[in-house]
């Protein structure tokens, strides 16, 4: 359903995506896994035709650059954060994107209800919480029942509750025969949603493993979500990376992957660097649910 052939994308001298090839048959679910800057989001943007690139990407046999409109008709896309006009009504947004997808008669309330937003159609987008906005984006992505879902770190800016709800919703969708390609920093999402994991480093896919193998490699590991002031986040990621941790930025803090016996180590390291942590939560990486 998705065929990515030898795709490269440069930004000036930086090779953001480097000769990536990946094929997803219908019904497959692949997670793009990697640190910030690994090229996951750039690859997704290439697939959506938002960026020009070398190589070829086809969705359902339709080239995303030459026949982009028809290729994107097959794709439902959920971004990291929804950038709607604040004054836009929720149901109005659903109807607008429905028209863009060629759905003449659309029951916006039913579409919203399918993602747990029943009764919110009359609100303005600005009145929705972060998690509700992501569910709105998901309801829009599902309009017209597209065979492909593309998700770009959809839980990055959500709190633990919002994350759990959204992953639950997506988990229900992944079993319905849709082809799913998504970028994620979170092993627990990968474990629930993916069949295969494409591990990206510096723009390349360095290996592709089954999600079960990936989960067992992360068994017993946990993800620390450290909340801190925005001005400390970049320095915290550098300190943690230098200290040997896999750390990355997310919407409101820093994510750190830790082994079971080293959960306190990032705290000590950041305290030595003089970086104050305002809050944290810890998520164990679950075993894959068959």
């Amino acid at each position: 359903m998705i065929r990515i052939e030898n795709v490269s994308k440069r930004f000036g001298r930086t090779r953001a995506v480097d000769s990536v090839s990946l094929a997803l048959p219908a019904g497959d679910s692949v997670a793009l896994w990697g640190a910030n800057g690994a090229g996951k989001t750039t690859l997704i943007r290439c697939l959506l035709g938002l960026l020009r690139f070398q190589g070829r990407i086809a969705v359902g046999g339709r080239d995303v650059l030459r026949d982009g409109k028809r290729a994107r008709l097959l794709v439902g896309y959920v971004p990291q954060e929804l950038g709607f006009h604040d004054e836009l009504g929720v149901a109005e947004a659903v109807r607008f994107f429905g028209r863009l997808k060629g759905i003449a008669r659309l029951d916006a309330e039913a579409a919203l209800a399918s993602v747990g937003l029943a009764g919110h159609g009359g609100k303005r987008v600005r009145e929705l919480s972060g998690g509700m906005k992501q569910r709105l984006a998901l309801s829009i992505a599902l309009l017209g029942d597209p065979p492909v879902l593309v998700l770009d770190e959809v839980t990055a800016s959500l709190d633990a509750v919002g994350r759990e709800e959204l992953v639950g919703l997506l988990g229900g969708l992944s079993g319905q025969g849709r082809t799913m390609l998504f970028a994620s920093h979170r092993p627990e999402e990968v474990a629930v949603l993916a069949r295969r994991v494409a591990v990206m480093e510096r723009g390349r896919i360095v290996r592709t493993v089954l999600a079960a193998e990936f989960a067992s490699a992360h068994q017993g590991r946990a993800v620390l979500h450290l909340v801190m002031a925005a001005e400390h986040r970049d320095r915290a990621v550098r300190s943690l990376t230098d200290g040997g941790f896999a750390a990355s930025l997310n919407g409101v803090g820093v994510l750190v992957h830790v082994a079971p016996e080293h959960k306190a180590a990032p705290f000590r390291l950041l305290a030595r660097a003089g970086i104050a942590i305002d809050d944290f939560d810890i998520t164990p990486v679950p075993e894959r649910t068959p």
């Binding site: 359903m1 086809a58 008709l73 006009h85 028209r99």
Partner: peptide, 30 residues
């Protein structure tokens, strides 16, 4: 496998005037 990858899904894209009208409507309302 190649056939499974490239299997086109029959689906009609909205016409050019319809897309322009939808975007124009949103722009006008905004």
């Amino acid at each position: 496998q190649a056939a499974a990858l490239d299997q086109p899904v029959p689906r009609r894209a909205p016409s050019v005037p319809s897309t322009i009208a939808a975007v124009a409507g949103r722009s006008l309302r905004d």
